[in-house]
């Protein structure tokens, strides 16, 4: 999976590295801003109310 992505990134090694970092940042942002806020209330980790 990761080697496939690496092979398909265009440019020199330095450019590829930058692109890979950008990809990681984009995925992390998607998780933090969209996926986790959606998921969090559905998980039983942080219920503080009685009843």
């Amino acid at each position: 999976m990761y080697s496939w992505i690496w092979r398909h990134l265009p440019g020199s090694r330095a450019v590829k590295l930058l692109e890979a970092l950008l990809l990681v940042a984009a995925v992390a942002a998607l998780l933090m801003l969209v996926a986790f806020p959606w998921l969090e209330p559905r998980l039983p980790f942080n219920d503080v109310t009685a009843g």
Partner: peptide, 26 residues
């Protein structure tokens, strides 16, 4: 096999990221 291993590693990282999100980002 390699794809499965990479998926499992990724899943572990996502769980760690969720803990970070829950405890700090919020």
């Amino acid at each position: 096999v390699r794809g499965l291993g990479e998926l499992l590693l990724t899943a572990g990282l996502v769980v760690l990221l969720f803990v970070f999100y829950e405890a700090y980002v919020t």
